[in-house]
């Protein structure tokens, strides 16, 4: 073994990108099991609710001359809601069991921690991985939406970064929480008591103006409401409002806050 152990490079690749590489190699082996949740579920919801239920809704609204949905078909109304909701579902799914596995069962993070990677590099690589997957999923869904005829403007492309933003806004707090857990006991509760209610009451399937006022205010304090509103603004072509800035700002703030907490919990878990 020579004394010169590492080859000299002009510019070392960033530490976090090395962690990302490790996760991508893993993903190449396991991507098949995520296909259904990431791609098939949203399309099924879109078809069933957008077309099946949409038939009932469109007919009723036309007959009663109500403009509850702002003049678009039910399909076009719910599609951005499903985009944002599946970003949430993917993040909460990916941000729980797989993260715990990388700490405890496969111990991927531990292997990384033995190398020059620090806790914050590992976390950054993990978040980059989540963002990439969200980007892929959102892209596929936007194409689906276009195929279903649910897009009305080129601003709809902004739905891609919106999906990533919603995904990160949910992923970072989830990951921060998971890093403190020793078992998966809390995860089903997150799904049933947080994810499902948010999914149903954040304006994906009906405008939250239908809710009683106090519940409306509650909904507006939750992240998915802002994700849905922002995605809808993008796909229906009315992004250029101050409301959009507000929605984006909320999501960004949540994502950053979650990332900061996650950094602390990662460090505490990996460097004990």
């Amino acid at each position: 073994m020579s004394a010169l152990s590492l080859p000299r490079r002009d510019r070392a690749t960033p530490l976090w990108s090395r962690a990302l590489f490790g996760l991508l190699v893993q993903y190449r082996r396991t991507w098949r099991s995520s296909v259904e949740m990431n791609f098939i579920y949203p399309v099924l919801y879109l078809s069933a609710m957008g077309i099946g239920l949409g038939g009932l809704v469109n007919r009723h609204l036309a007959a009663s001359h109500a403009a509850a949905l702002g003049g678009v078909s039910y399909l076009a109304f719910i599609a951005p809601g499903i985009l944002a909701s599946s970003a949430m579902q993917i993040s909460t799914q990916e941000g729980t069991w797989p993260i715990l596995g990388r700490f405890k069962w496969e111990r991927t993070y531990l292997a990384m921690a033995q190398t020059p990677l620090r806790a914050k590099d590992i976390l950054t690589g993990q978040l980059a991985f989540v963002a990439l997957r969200q980007l892929m999923t959102s892209a596929v869904f936007v194409v689906m939406m276009w195929a279903f005829g649910a897009l009305t403007s080129p601003e709809a492309l902004v739905a891609l970064p919106v999906g990533v933003l919603v995904g990160l806004a949910f992923a970072t707090p989830c990951i921060a929480f998971t890093a403190t857990q020793e078992t998966d006991a809390g995860f089903p509760t997150i799904h049933r008591l947080i994810v499902i209610p948010l999914f149903l009451f954040s304006g994906s399937f009906f405008p939250i103006t239908q809710l009683p006022r106090p519940l409306q205010l509650l909904a507006m304090a939750t992240p998915l409401y802002h994700g849905v509103a922002l995605a809808r603004a993008a796909t229906l072509g009315h992004l250029a409002t101050s409301a959009s800035v507000g929605h984006a700002g909320y999501l960004l703030a949540l994502a950053l806050f979650g990332a900061l907490v996650a950094r602390r919990t990662f460090e505490r878990r990996l460097v004990r």
Partner: peptide, 21 residues
């Protein structure tokens, strides 16, 4: 907690969807 899921669906239908449908 598994029991809550259909309950939430029912609520969302009563409160939200019924007006649309």
């Amino acid at each position: 907690s598994g029991f809550f899921e259909p309950l939430f669906y029912l609520l969302s239908i009563n409160v939200g969807l019924s007006h649309l449908v």
